[in-house]
């Protein structure tokens, strides 16, 4: 019931000089509850635009997004809690809502709050009591492996630890869908791999639906049950994969999987696909100038 339906999304920006840019065209897919989707593509392919539309930060110029409804039929009454306005189409995404959480690349934590206060932010906003917040903080500090760090200041933590806090802050609000915008983009390779395991584990333990955007082909292959490769101008879904590696990564060694023949083959295939897209963009730019 907590599935995501994205239908025929299009996004055309009007430019101040009267022209327009088509950032997305005809993007549509359905994501079942508990699925993990990764989205990959060269810069300018509209993957962040897509995520921002699903989060409710941007209104698309064509198409619609529904969340939390079965097919097009409502399974729950519309409520403000779900970011929905009574009387409107049930499940239609028109604004950010607490059922769709988001983890950003670094810099979205609140530096003026302690780690604990960052994690308790969502519960506090809905008016949770002191005791409840304390329990929630405790629980999610444990989930992300930061037990005992509650009183630390954000700027005292390393980049990897900060992203753990960001993950805990998002989870503490109990969203049904978690959107991740290159959450590991600024981390070093080792920390990144640890965080990938953590994301897999959380996905498995909580059964959340996750959409993760990344620049890294390896990460997209490793984490995604489903993987979209997007192409630019206009942004669209070029290829879709269904992958076994995320489920295997749960009880296996991530690095072992990364040397697996199937994994390597897919990686090379996608890399050359993106390589070609980049080449084409460069060529177009050269011709234009």
């Amino acid at each position: 019931m907590n599935g995501l339906i994205v239908k025929d999304l299009g996004m055309t920006y009007e430019l101040p000089n009267g022209g327009s840019v088509e950032a997305l065209r005809g993007v549509g897919f359905e994501l079942a509850a508990g699925e993990m989707l990764t989205v990959l593509g060269p810069s300018g392919c509209g993957k962040t635009t897509l995520l921002n539309i699903v989060a409710g930060f941007l209104a698309p110029t064509a198409g619609k997004v529904w969340f939390g409804v079965d097919g097009a039929k409502p399974v729950t009454a519309p409520s403000r809690e779900r970011g929905l306005v009574p009387g409107r189409e049930p499940g239609l995404v028109t604004a950010p809502g607490r059922e769709r959480g988001m983890v950003f690349q670094q810099g979205a934590l609140f530096e003026w709050m302690s780690v604990a206060d960052n994690i308790a932010f969502g519960p506090r906003m809905r008016g949770a009591g002191k005791k409840e917040m304390k329990d929630i903080v405790e629980q999610y500090l444990n989930t992300v492996g930061l037990a005992g760090f509650g009183n630390k200041a954000i700027y005292e933590l390393s980049g990897g630890m900060q992203q753990r806090v960001a993950l805990a802050r998002c989870l503490a609000n109990e969203p049904h869908l978690i959107l991740m915008d290159e959450p590991l983009g600024a981390l070093d390779a080792l920390t990144r791999e640890k965080m990938q395991s953590l994301i897999l584990k959380i996905w498995n333990d909580t059964g959340k639906t996750i959409v993760l955007i990344t620049h890294s082909v390896e990460e997209a292959l490793m984490l995604g049950q489903r993987l979209f490769v997007m192409a630019p101008r206009p942004g669209r879904i070029e290829r879709e994969y269904r992958l076994p590696f995320a489920s295997r990564g749960l009880d296996g060694n991530l690095r072992e999987i990364k040397t697996d023949a199937e994994y390597v083959e897919k990686r090379e295939e996608i890399l050359s696909m993106i390589w070609e897209m980049e080449e084409e963009i460069m060529g177009r730019q050269e011709r234009a100038s």
Binding site: A55, F57, P96, G97, R98, R100, G101, M102, F104, Q105, G107, A108, L109, F110, F121, G122, M125, R126, R169, C170, N173, P175
Partner: peptide, 12 residues
């Protein structure tokens, strides 16, 4: 992203 984070966490 800080503003966006606050809204997705349910802030008015």
């Amino acid at each position: 992203s800080k503003i966006h984070a606050a809204y997705t966490l349910g802030a008015s």
